[in-house]
Simulated scan of single mutants.
Amino acid sequence: MSYREYVIAAYAVFAVVLLWDFVVPQLQIRAALHAARQRLLRADARKAAPAPDRELQR
């Protein structure tokens, strides 16, 4: 492997790692926001639902 091929490979690895460092946090943020929105929707649905009847029935 010549020096030029080594440098090209090193820059390619650097570019892949740089792209990975950008994409993964974006995906984690998106997943966290989605989970928070779903949690709020469930809490709102719980508040809007009528309270269950606590009387015993036969």
Rank of each mutant, 00 (worst) to 15 (best):
A31C: 03
I29E: 14
R54K: 14
R39P: 00
M1A: 15
A15M: 08
A10E: 11
I8E: 13
V17I: 15
R30T: 05
D53C: 02
V7A: 10
A15P: 04
R42M: 10
Y11R: 10
K47G: 01
L33E: 15
M1P: 01
W20G: 14
R39H: 11
S2E: 06
V23G: 01
A48P: 04
R46A: 15
R46F: 13
Q28E: 14
A51R: 12
Q26R: 15
V13K: 08
F22N: 07
R30Y: 09
Y6K: 14
Y6E: 11
A45C: 09
V17Y: 01
R46M: 11
V17Q: 03
A36Q: 15
A35L: 10
V23C: 05
H34I: 05
P50S: 00
R37D: 14
L19C: 09
F14R: 10
M1F: 08
R39M: 08
R46D: 12
L18Q: 02
L56N: 11
A51P: 05
E5K: 01
L27G: 08
R30G: 03
P25M: 06
E55C: 01
V24G: 06
R58Y: 06
S2F: 03
V7Y: 07
A15F: 04
R37M: 07
L40D: 13
I8W: 02
D21R: 02
V17R: 01
V13F: 10
D44Y: 12
L40N: 05
A45D: 10
S2I: 08
L33M: 15
A35K: 09
R46T: 12
M1H: 09
Q57M: 06
R39D: 08
F14S: 09
V23L: 15
R42K: 12
Q26Y: 00
A31G: 03
Y11W: 12
V16G: 03
R39L: 09
V17L: 14
Q26I: 10
Q28R: 15
L27W: 08
D44W: 11
I8M: 09
A9W: 04
A49E: 08
A48T: 05
A15V: 11
A45I: 02
R58H: 11
V7N: 00
L18F: 12
A35W: 02
L18E: 00
A49K: 10
Q38E: 14
Q26A: 10
A15W: 01
A32C: 00
Q28V: 02
Y11N: 13
L41R: 13
V24I: 14
L27N: 10
A48L: 13
L27V: 06
L56P: 02
V13H: 01
Q28H: 09
P25K: 08
R58N: 08
Y3T: 08
A35M: 08
A12E: 13
L33P: 00
A15L: 14
